[in-house]
Structures are given as structure tokens and as C-alpha cells.
Write a protein that binds this DNA or RNA. Structure first.
Lengths: 293, 293
DNA sequence: TAACCATATAAACACCCCTTATATCCATTA
DNA sequence: TAATGGATATAAGGGGTGTTTATATGGTTA
């Protein structure tokens, strides 16, 4: 027979008060309840814990010893509960986000900054990688959520789009006259093009779309990051395929100009992915609210 | 609302097993009981502690953290229970005995030695003093039991006689002829007498008994310890009032001889006294058994 | 697709713990 | 010494809670 732990809570309070009736008040119980609880504990331990006196009770040696242990135990539980509360406050804990490089810089970083200011004690861990590698990281428990380019088609994931992005082509001043009027995919493909590497999700998306229209591209430059692509365009190395939303500053300042296309490239979305089977942690859930809201 | 501590015990077992049904087996409960207990704990903490998977459950971050605290707490309780068991085994704890000097040396010491051999881990504290001072020490909680000369007449004490002692008079070789035949109190009182100090319980007892027979004694020597009294008799300084049981060696070896009295001094007893209001500790109770048995 | 193993849900029952009521003991005070 | 007050002990009844049985649901595996 295992001794009920709740008896120890009562025991601690009685030990503190040196009185059954005093403990009863503190615990919002009646004196007989306390009396019986202590008697039960004493019976199960086969040890007298208190000496009853006309003015209360006093601990026996055994009782004193036990009280130290019981007090510590209950304190530990209380500290544990406090820690849990801190988790809920997001004053402790961690948030592990998987995110693609470009999204990281232009979309997630500002959000992360705000989030960090709000919950400065939360540990943040950011994992970079391709969409595919991030999704498998998510499934293996390496990250809590993944922010990546959609579509992601996986029945075991919750996928929530949170921002639309548009693939577009931009150029520097040198090409201004040449591109003064709208052009089609086929004409565009003949110009010197600047793209991301073929492995990149964005590159594949645009390239596939062109292919579906019967147009094959063969870029002059294939670069490792969106930043580089933008810089090359600004240096008039060619026409760059970029994400409009991540090139906003250059477009608004007039450093770059957008190609007018006669056909549209359908927009894509950035979305948050999480495992259906694992409920979001408080931190993840709060972060998702933030970037969706 | 305070969270029931027993939920934490279940939580620990589930955490260890990473499985509700596994924990159910270990706890001799059914799986739904575990399921509901964890759900209740999660509800009261408003925090998910386990992620349910098809092959069991896994701890969330919150759960992991809480488990450390809960495990430690329950371990503490278990250690406390073990300590209590040690108290019962008399492998820890202490025994505080109040005892008169003479009794200490001739009666208690041998018993104490046996007791200590049997329970070597028990701390022993011996307090010396007069019967009166020991009784008040007992009442103030300074000792657990008192071994002293009876009678002790106090309604708040349990008094158990455990050995009879006899007051008698002894002498050395010089008095041999003089005391070859039985004599009465009155004649005895005229001889040079060696007694304990007037404050001693034994002295008072014998002196009072003589007085009740109309005989007043005026000892030649009044000494501080029974040992001294015996030694003075051996050195033929007079006729010594001693306890027969504590002078056995001298009498048997012929170093001292016992006065043949025509009237008897009623025997007294040595007894163990304890407070009625305070049950004996395991150690006290075991010791009392020993000296009574 | 069926079987198996995991957790979740629902409902009934049994047990336990708490409360109310009362007793008892001791100490203090009139 | 009797009476009062405050402490714990005891007894009995009732309500709540936790456990069980029964069943559902979901997911992996063969």
C-alpha cells in the first residue's frame, strides 16, 4: 500500500502550526479531518509523528525528521508549478523555427525582433535550410515550426499561409529603354537573366511555370542568395528574377525597375507549417498568432 | 484549488514509462485511470505535459521540466519514509536516560552496554542527578525515561519497578567479633555509622525508617557516593549503610560482612519512569523491555 | 484492409474522505 | 472544587471523486 501524498501536505501544515485545529483553519478543513489524516499517516508509517498535548501537538523526533523531507518535497512541487506558470507566461522556454534564407531575412527577421522584445526570456533557435530539409527537420522534432514557401503538400502537417509573395523580374537603369514596354515570357527568356541556383524553391517555381508555357530559360547568372541576385541586377548585369516583396526598397527608391509582363506569374505564399500530431507549444502558438495577425 | 499531490506520483510513473498503459501496469491501475489523471493534471496546470503518439506518449518541454521537480519531490518523500523505517529499526535516533549515580554504575551500565552492542547506531545520552531533579527533567522533556529509586508517587508518570534493592549495613574485619550476632536498630545506631549525604534518596529512606521506629541516627561519616561509603567500610572506618545488590562483590569475596539485623528494613525497588502523556519512542520502549525482561 | 496497440470517452459504482455531532481530557479560573 | 474553555478523539453519515468496465477512435503494421 502506497501512502497518499496528500497526507504529507496536511502533515507539513500541522507540523508548521503545531496544532491540528490550527492546521484545519489554514487548510479550510475541520479539525477531525486533520486528526484523522494524521492518524492515518501515523498508522501507515507505524510511527507516532506528534505528541498530543492539551495545548496542541508537538513533533516527535521521527516527526521532525520526516517534516524536513516532506517540506522540501512539497516546496519542490510548488517550484515546479511556478516553472510551468513561467512557461505559460513565455518567460522561460524556447522556440525553434525552421526557415528558408530569404524568408528569414525579409519576412521573419522583423517579426522575430518584435517577438523577442515582447518575450525577451524566450530562447530562440533558428534553423536554415531548404523547404524540404526543414520539413523533415520538423518531422524529426528538430524544430517546432517551419516558415517556408508554399505549397507544401503533406497530410501530416498543418499549413497556414500568412503572406503572399510575387515572383517578378527587375532591372537596373541600363535596361530602361529596352524594357519600357510590356513583354512576354518568350522575349524575356532571350535577355540576360539572373536567377537563384536551380535547387532553390523559388527558382524551380518560376522555371517550372515558364516551362509549362513552353519557355525554357538559361540564365546568365545563377547565384546563391536573393541578395546577390538583387545586387547583380542593380549593377546592370542583367534581368533578375526576384520576389517583389523582398525588393520593395530598391523598387521604391528607383534603384531597380520592374519588368512589365504581358502574362502573369501566379503568386505564391509563405506559410507556417507544424505537425498535426503535436499540439503547438505556448511559445510556438504565440509566435504563429503574431505572424498571422 | 490545490493540485492533488497523488497526480504527481502518477505523472512521474508515466514520465518514466513514456506510456499511459505502461504506467497503468506499474501502478496496478487501468489505462483510463491514468489517462484521466494526466488529463486532470494538465487541466489544472493548464499545460500540456505529454504529446500523445500512436506508440505511447512523449514529454513536452514543460512536462520534462516538471518531471524533474516531481521526481525529486517523490524521491524525497521516499527517503523520508526510509528514515522513519530506520527509526523503527533503531538504526538511527537517540535515547536519553536520566539515572541516579549509584544506579547508573551498578544497575544501568551493564544494561546499557548490552543495548549499545545491539543498537550501535543509536545515540545515547545519560543525565545524572537526584531522583527529584531527574523527574523534573523528564517532565520538561529533557530525557525520555528515568531510572531511579522508587517509590515515585506522581500521577502523571508511568512507573514500572524492575529490580528490588535492599538497604543493609556492612562492616570490615575489625568489627567482626563485635557483630557476630544479630542486633537491633537501636544498638546499631550507637556504632560509628557511614552514610550517604542527607540529601540522598537512599539515606533519607533508611533514616526515615529508623525514625519511624523511634531511632535517630547520627553518622560518623556522610559521603558523596555509594562507592566511597563502601570503601570507608572496607577500611574499617565504621558500619556502612549500603545497597546489598551494589555491594555483592565485596560481600562474596569476604572483604565486607553484612550486619545481621533483628528487624528488617523493607526493600525498595528501582523503577523506570516515563510520562503518561508522551508515548514511549521506539528506542525508549525497546530499552524498557530490555531492563524489565 | 484487417488486426493490433495506443489513447480517449462515457457511465456507473464503490470507496474514501470530509463534515457534523459528540465525547474526553487537561488546564485554567472563579 | 466546580466550571469553563480549548485542545484532540471518536462515531456515523453523506457527498464527491477516482476507478473500473465498456466502448470509441486513431494510427501503424502486416
Amino acid at each position: 500500500m502506497v501512502i497518499k501524498l496528500d497526507l504529507y501536505r496536511i502533515f507539513c501544515v500541522v507540523g508548521k502550526n503545531q496544532s491540528f485545529s490550527g492546521a484545519a483553519k489554514e487548510l479550510f478543513m475541520t479539525q477531525p479531518a486533520i486528526s484523522q489524516s494524521i492518524m492515518q499517516l501515523e498508522k501507515e508509517l507505524d510511527t507516532r509523528l506528534f505528541n498530543r498535548t492539551p495545548k496542541g501537538v508537538t513533533l516527535t523526533n521521527e516527526g521532525s525528521l520526516l517534516l524536513e523531507y516532506a517540506n522540501s518535497a512539497i516546496n519542490l512541487i510548488e517550484i515546479g508549478e511556478e516553472k510551468i506558470a513561467e512557461f505559460k507566461n513565455l518567460t522561460i522556454g524556447e522556440l525553434r523555427i525552421g526557415v528558408g534564407d530569404t524568408i528569414s531575412k525579409y519576412f521573419l527577421l522583423p517579426q522575430l525582433e518584435a517577438f523577442r522584445n515582447r518575450y525577451p526570456n524566450l530562447k530562440l533557435k533558428i534553423e536554415n535550410g531548404t523547404t524540404d530539409s526543414l520539413i523533415s527537420l520538423l518531422k524529426s522534432g528538430g524544430v517546432d515550426i517551419v516558415v517556408c514557401n508554399l505549397p507544401v503538400d503533406d497530410p501530416s502537417l498543418n499549413v497556414t499561409p500568412c503572406m503572399d509573395i510575387h515572383d517578378t523580374f527587375v532591372y537596373g537603369d541600363k535596361y530602361r529603354k529596352l524594357l519600357a514596354r510590356p513583354i512576354g515570357f518568350r522575349e524575356l527568356a532571350k535577355l540576360p537573366l539572373i536567377f537563384l541556383e536551380p535547387s532553390s524553391n523559388s527558382r524551380k517555381y518560376v522555371e517550372d511555370h515558364f516551362l509549362s508555357k513552353g519557355v525554357k530559360i538559361s540564365p546568365e547568372f545563377e547565384l546563391g542568395s536573393h541578395d546577390l541576385v538583387v545586387e547583380f541586377a542593380r549593377m546592370n548585369m542583367g534581368i533578375a528574377c526576384v520576389t517583389r516583396e523582398f525588393t520593395k526598397d530598391y523598387l521604391e527608391s528607383g534603384a531597380l525597375h520592374e519588368v512589365q509582363l504581358t502574362e502573369q506569374i501566379p503568386y505564391r505564399s509563405i506559410g507556417v507549417c507544424s505537425l498535426k500530431s503535436v499540439p503547438l507549444s505556448p511559445a510556438s502558438s504565440r509566435f504563429v498568432e503574431l505572424i498571422e495577425g
